[in-house]
Design a protein around this nucleic acid. Structure first.
Lengths: 234, 234
DNA sequence: ATGATTATGTGTACAAAGTACACAATGTTT
DNA sequence: AAACATTGTGTACTTTGTACACATAATCAT
């Protein structure tokens, strides 16, 4: 806590502005996953009486000595044990009455994780994956946060290869298309999808085939390693 | 301040989480204007000793009983006396040491105002318009906030008619193009610009001509009123 | 092993949008 | 009336988006 002396105008001197330090800052993480052709989101049963039975996003208060971005990583790490994850700020929600227990301004981050690679700290029924399409009510303003984050995600996947975070390293074009369809909630034309992906030039042909399907196997691809590295915020 | 009784887990009960209420929340407004073919930004001389001589964005702490969005309107109103203004959240900056006097998480908003219509509370030399291109150093992390907001603005003007906030009601296509060129910091082809604008279908031909130019006058246009109304955040 | 089933892999015709580029018309200044 | 400055306009080409059908490869059931 920098205590600066001789400020011309002590705009933030604690002693004279104590009333301003009555707002808490939190982070809410919208953690998207993908499984069985559905876009999922990780939710936890709310522990507040006001929202008994409701689910909410994973959030926590930001510590006074913790960067906002770091707080989002901490929350993700605590909940999923994931260390090296795609995470991006979406929006900050600051309505006065958005939290029943006090004034809390919350910054939303969204994340994409591969569900199968991380069946980790998610053991109990209070913390589990929900199909985004079926999420109708959430505690606090979390429904709005989820909706905003989903729109944000839909914009991102058109321009950036962030979607790789949801898939295994190797995947077929069908699998990739299914992820897009799940996120956009709309069917896509197969030939046009392949043309579009080809134009983006994101993929490497592995010269391997699927071997676990009960029909003609497709070719396997991966994302260009360079793109994946640039994907991280940190 | 809702004091809720019988919380299952009092995640935010003040008494037990006092240490979290040590973060202040502020809003910084990136107020863009346009004058003499240049994109401008409204800056104020910093009143903190650490940044003596530096300029900073217009910002203020958010009051405990004030919505985040409302705070940005208040700041704009206080500084420019503008009431009915385009304002949009950009990003939240939360590095621990971004403010020398304490922990302050700040949410940036950007705004577009017509400089000529609002020569208002800007009387003294500590608060004035600066050409964005010439802004090199700012107090705090405000250079980064400005840069982020400018990128955001560049994205917005391609998709939304927000630019009307910078112009008088009636304008020629040349004037409109000059605003785009100032914001994008690049020259545009006149014929292609006109085609693009025509396709967007944002303008109404007023069947009037410029009368204050010393050359062939251009036709005057205005933005469709419907678009302008949808422009506000409320 | 054969036929039915399922999913892969591919190309063309058309529409929409972006880009590069030049010349005649209109008003002002001298 | 000539020089100047700026408006207003269109075409050819490229790129991107969209609609759409058929042969091929592997599995499954009999």
């Amino acid at each position: 806590m920098a205590k600066s002396s001789n400020l011309k105008t002590a705009a933030l001197e604690k002693s004279s502005h104590l009333e301003y330090f009555k707002i808490a800052v939190s982070v809410d993480c919208v953690i998207f996953g993908y499984e069985e052709k559905e876009l999922k989101v990780l939710l936890i049963k709310s522990d507040l009486k006001e929202f008994a039975g409701s689910y909410s996003l994973l959030g926590d208060l930001v510590r006074p000595d913790e960067d906002l971005d770091k707080a989002s990583y901490r929350i993700l790490k605590e909940r999923t044990d994931l260390d090296d994850v795609f995470l991006q700020q979406v929006h900050t929600f600051g309505a006065v009455n958005r939290h029943p227990s006090g004034r809390v301004v919350s910054t939303a981050y969204y994340s994409l994780v591969n569900i199968n690679n991380h069946k980790l700290k998610i053991n109990n029924n209070d913390l589990r994956w929900h199909t985004v399409k079926n999420v109708h009510k959430l505690a606090f303003d979390h429904k709005e946060i989820l909706a905003t984050s989903l729109l944000h995600l839909r914009g991102q996947i058109e321009e950036h290869p962030v979607i790789h975070n949801l898939l295994d390293e190797k995947f077929s074009l069908r699998e990739l298309q299914e992820v897009y369809e799940a996120i956009l909630n709309t069917p896509l034309d197969r030939r046009n999808f392949r043309k579009k992906i080809t134009l983006k030039n994101w993929l490497v042909d592995l010269n391997e085939m699927e071997d676990n399907v009960s029909h003609r196997p497709g070719k396997l691809y991966k994302f260009k390693p360079k793109l994946i590295k640039n994907n991280k915020l940190a």
